[in-house]
């Protein structure tokens, strides 16, 4: 059974946010309003954290893309009273929307702030050119989460279903890397992100995750995230 994971090279990340936009489009994330933004209710399954260091004119900004860390020991799944969120056999921390009762225990339990609650009904703007609403561009492989449920990055698990289906139709096993790639990894122009089976020897993720530059966010918490970062320089 594969154990899917991601490696993000902070030396290569330029903070362009292509990953955020790709994720937004792929997963039908609602466009937020100014009011929502002011209240900290914008939903971004992968957000780029800027870290500004120094003072003008000697300023340096570091960027850190943060998707759901898909922890091996997830704090969010333990607090869910209805098992709407759980870790599956392949290590993906899933969120089953029709099962979610919107208690937000998991939102508060996540130390990486990667779970988002839908405070209002999703709404997409109408076309300004008299055409269809932007909701016409929804990805049919992903549902639109209604008000009152919590949502999160799924490592684009719908792509895994399709990749597995394709591999089976070609009568071959699913490859450890390359067959199943989340939208953010695919979109990264700097090739700062890679994805694959962490347990499969020879994959870029398994090798990079063991590199001396590799670290994980807040390792002291013991959540065992499957998203690794490579330090700069």
């Amino acid at each position: 059974m594969p154990r899917w994971g991601m490696v993000i090279d902070l030396d290569k990340c330029t903070g362009c946010q292509a990953c955020t936009v790709a994720c937004q489009t792929e997963n039908n994330l609602r466009p937020g309003s100014v009011e929502e933004s002011q209240r900290g209710r914008i939903i971004e399954w992968i957000h780029v954290l800027p870290v500004v260091e120094g003072e003008y004119p000697h300023v340096k900004t570091r960027y850190m893309p943060v998707p759901c860390q898909h922890c091996d020991n997830p704090p969010c799944t333990r607090v869910c009273p209805v098992r709407a969120t759980y870790k599956n056999d392949e290590g993906i921390v899933a969120q089953i929307y029709p099962r979610c009762i919107g208690c937000r225990y998991c939102v508060n339990a996540c130390p990486y702030t990667c779970k988002f609650f839908n405070w209002s009904q999703p709404d997409w703007p109408e076309s300004t050119h008299g055409g269809k609403s932007l909701s016409a561009a929804h990805n049919p492989d992903v549902s639109v989460r209604p008000v009152g449920v919590t949502e999160k990055c799924s490592f684009c698990s719908h792509r895994l279903i399709k990749a597995r289906e394709q591999a089976k139709s070609e009568e071959r096993p699913l490859r450890s890397e390359g067959d199943f790639v989340p939208a953010c990894v695919e979109a990264c122009p700097a090739e700062a992100m890679c994805f694959g089976d962490l347990d499969s020897p020879g994959t870029a993720v398994s090798e990079l995750s063991r590199s001396h530059r590799a670290f994980r966010l807040q390792e002291e918490l013991g959540a065992e995230p499957k998203v690794y970062y490579l330090t700069e320089g």
Partner: peptide, 8 residues
């Protein structure tokens, strides 16, 4: 029978 096999 994993939930993710059918739920999206």
């Amino acid at each position: 029978t994993d939930c993710l096999a059918c739920h999206k």
